[in-house]
């Protein structure tokens, strides 16, 4: 499968994401600059990586969400292409309106950088098919603005529709209902603060993240 990683000024997990995608798909992803207006032909999946795009100016992800390439990403997502946003990528996808809610300053105000325990809430999605529902996994987090916020009605809806992919199994950042990763209504866009691309090989301290990419590859049959 051909994949693409979007690169913004200030992205800093784009290479981690590229290595993860190359290991799992067997080919290096296209690195797509934010000023581009189209995705390369034949792409089967888009990743929006972590980092501090535009220095988090205005709001985390706000500037990146309005950059030229995001119109192409939104169009691809609208046609069902899987889009994965991790950390700053999650913030970008909420700012772009591709995912509900917003990511605000961590409840404890501190930057949180450590491994956290997560519970897989939805093991049926395009991204989570290689996990078991209720399974406990460990991914690293590294963020200052990971506090997921949405109004009660939105939270009820996304929970009721099974759109919570991952939940924190321990206190991390004050996220509403401990939501760590959320899917769009069609299930083809996933945003999450924890970093699956940093748990790909045993040298990373675990391989829990690898199954997310493997599951996605399997789902889209590439």
């Amino acid at each position: 499968m051909k994949t693409a990683v979007i690169v913004f000024p200030g992205s800093n997990c784009d290479r981690d994401m590229a290595v993860a995608l190359e290991q799992v798909t067997g080919r290096a992803p296209a690195m797509v600059w934010h000023r581009d207006t189209a995705l390369p032909d034949g792409i089967g999946m888009v990743a929006v990586p972590g980092g501090f795009s535009y220095g988090d100016y205005l709001r985390a992800g706000a500037m990146a969400a309005r950059s030229p390439i995001m119109a192409a990403v939104a169009a691809a997502a609208g046609k069902g292409m899987p889009v994965l946003g991790v950390c700053n990528g999650f913030q970008v996808l909420t700012e772009a309106g591709l995912l509900p809610g917003a990511l605000m300053r961590n409840g404890g105000l501190n930057f949180v950088c450590r491994d956290v325990a997560l519970t897989v809430e939805n093991a049926q999605s395009a991204f989570t098919g290689r996990y078991a529902a209720g399974e406990r996994v460990s991914f690293p987090v590294a963020h200052h603005d990971g506090n997921f916020v949405a109004d009660a009605e939105t939270l009820d809806r996304i929970e009721g529709e099974g759109r919570v992919a991952f939940r924190y199994a321990e206190p991390v950042n004050g996220s509403a209902r401990a939501i760590a990763g959320v899917l769009n209504d069609a299930g083809n866009v996933l945003g999450m603060m924890p970093h699956p691309e940093r748990r790909i090989e045993p040298a990373h301290g675990g391989t829990d993240g690898r199954r997310l990419f493997e599951g996605l590859l399997e789902t889209i049959g590439a």
Partner: peptide, 9 residues
């Protein structure tokens, strides 16, 4: 609406 404020929050 499009940039300066995030009307979700």
């Amino acid at each position: 609406r499009q940039l300066l404020a995030n009307t979700v929050i």
